[in-house]
Simulated assay, not measured.
Amino acid sequence: MEHLYWDLGSFAGGAQFEVCLRGSTARVCLMDVEHYQAYLDGDEYEYHGGFWDVSPVVLEVPYDGYWYLVVDSNVRRISVEVAQIFD
């Protein structure tokens, strides 16, 4: 399965990330370790996010844990920047 991903690491609930998309629309998914592995295995999984055609996208970590950010799109046509938002 071709996708872009970022291993964000451990974050407390409430942490926020800004995702800037250029070149294509995309499904942007924030997943914990268990759901990311299910995604890779082709099993059922849950994620926080959605399909976006407007940028930037701001996603909030819903609970404490280890997180991955996945961007499903045509990886040859999209450029993505990810940054943590600090208050």
Rank of each mutant, 00 (worst) to 15 (best):
residue 40 L to W: 03
residue 79 S to E: 15
residue 22 R to E: 10
residue 24 S to M: 11
residue 40 L to P: 00
residue 84 Q to Y: 06
residue 33 V to P: 02
residue 85 I to W: 02
residue 57 V to C: 07
residue 10 S to C: 07
residue 1 M to Q: 10
residue 71 V to Q: 02
residue 4 L to A: 06
residue 71 V to N: 02
residue 70 V to N: 02
residue 40 L to G: 05
residue 44 E to W: 09
residue 45 Y to H: 07
residue 33 V to H: 06
residue 43 D to W: 04
residue 2 E to T: 15
residue 47 Y to K: 00
residue 64 D to V: 14
residue 76 R to T: 08
residue 78 I to Y: 04
residue 47 Y to E: 01
residue 78 I to N: 04
residue 64 D to Q: 13
residue 25 T to D: 15
residue 35 H to Q: 13
residue 31 M to Y: 09
residue 72 D to Q: 14
residue 73 S to L: 02
residue 16 Q to K: 15
residue 49 G to W: 02
residue 4 L to K: 04
residue 22 R to H: 08
residue 4 L to S: 05
residue 25 T to I: 11
residue 35 H to G: 08
residue 86 F to C: 07
residue 67 W to Y: 06
residue 7 D to P: 03
residue 29 C to L: 15
residue 61 V to N: 01
residue 35 H to S: 13
residue 57 V to A: 08
residue 8 L to K: 00
residue 57 V to N: 08
residue 82 V to S: 06
residue 28 V to C: 10
residue 54 V to M: 14
residue 80 V to C: 12
residue 27 R to S: 10
residue 15 A to V: 09
residue 30 L to F: 10
residue 44 E to P: 12
residue 59 L to M: 12
residue 62 P to I: 10
residue 71 V to G: 01
residue 80 V to Q: 05
residue 66 Y to R: 13
residue 8 L to E: 01
residue 26 A to K: 03
residue 52 W to D: 06
residue 59 L to K: 04
residue 66 Y to S: 14
residue 65 G to M: 02
residue 41 D to C: 10
residue 62 P to W: 08
residue 64 D to L: 09
residue 30 L to Y: 07
residue 13 G to Y: 03
residue 18 E to H: 00
residue 40 L to D: 03
residue 36 Y to K: 10
residue 41 D to T: 12
residue 29 C to F: 09
residue 37 Q to G: 07
residue 50 G to I: 07
residue 49 G to E: 05
residue 44 E to N: 13
residue 23 G to N: 09
residue 42 G to S: 04
residue 32 D to M: 09
residue 86 F to Q: 10
residue 65 G to E: 03
residue 73 S to N: 06
residue 21 L to C: 08
residue 45 Y to D: 00
residue 76 R to A: 13
residue 69 L to C: 05
residue 20 C to E: 15
residue 8 L to H: 01
residue 58 V to H: 10
residue 70 V to E: 00
residue 15 A to M: 04
residue 12 A to M: 07
residue 11 F to K: 00
residue 38 A to S: 12
residue 17 F to M: 00
residue 30 L to T: 06
residue 39 Y to F: 14
residue 44 E to M: 07
residue 60 E to A: 12
residue 74 N to I: 06
residue 81 E to A: 11
residue 39 Y to K: 09
residue 31 M to T: 12
residue 54 V to H: 14
residue 74 N to F: 03
residue 35 H to Y: 05
residue 30 L to R: 08
residue 35 H to M: 11
residue 38 A to K: 13
residue 86 F to N: 11
residue 60 E to F: 08
residue 19 V to D: 01
residue 71 V to L: 01
residue 22 R to P: 00
residue 63 Y to M: 12
residue 10 S to K: 14
residue 61 V to M: 03
residue 6 W to N: 01
residue 25 T to L: 11
residue 4 L to E: 03
residue 26 A to N: 02
residue 37 Q to M: 08
residue 58 V to G: 07
residue 43 D to A: 11
residue 80 V to N: 09
residue 43 D to M: 05
residue 62 P to M: 06
